[in-house]
Amino acid sequence: MTDADTILHVDGLARHFGGVKAVDGATFSVKRGSITSLIGPNGAGKTTAFNLVTGFESADAGRVHFAGDDVSRLRADHRARKGMVRTFQLTRVLGKMTVLENAMLAAPDQPGERMWNVLTPRRWRSREAEVKAQALEVLDEIGLSEKAGDYAATLSGGQRKLLELGRALMARPDLMMLDEPMAGVNPTLGRQLLEYLDRLRTERGLTVLFIEHDMDVVMGVSDEVVVMTQGRVLMQDRPDVVRKDARVIDAYLGGADE
């Protein structure tokens, strides 16, 4: 089922809310080192699929394999530690903490996060300095270094998206799952971000899976496109194939009526 080239394989994932089938047997996979986009009309179940894959909601049925392991039963934070890191469509910034603290939070392997180490700073001070340097670097890349000392609650909607992206990067992901990362971000910065992600892909072998509505962005950067409609995966293929597929065009027109 999974081979070395596949980082994520999702099989028959389903989740019902009362009588509503939000995700209804979705199956797709993401190739290691690719940029894959997940598209579909409103209500297709994209965000729910994200929640199920990352463990933020529990699935009624189906399996999630990540980097060769079955992670279907793991809690969300455990999946994140394995390298599957997500952002949220509605940003979850920590408003009453500073922008820098927001970024530093996500750094892995900080012994100072264990309760019994809190009173012995020598065990975590050097790691803390590293983390801080990394966080400042990431904030610089996403254009928020000037805001490092401000409370995150003071950021604009677009800046919050960026901060969330920065926090996800701090977690050192292998697979980055972004839920509408460009919404509310100004286009110039959005393009810079894409370039940055692309660079991380070449340098670090990062894989990106993202939900996006802007078809120019999707077709421009994706290696593969997964199309969802009514909780199912309609097709998965290269952008140029997807663009021409009659079913996809149908799904979007049909979706417009909802």
């Binding site: 933020f56 994140a80 979850r92 920590l94 939070l105 996060e113 309760m115 809190v118």
Partner: peptide, 27 residues
Amino acid sequence: RIGRSPWRRALRAVRENEDAVAAAGKP
């Protein structure tokens, strides 16, 4: 003294938003 530790930073983050903390890989 505990207040300056990464542990308390994680606690404060839990106070702010549990989803964000879980997404950052913290238990």
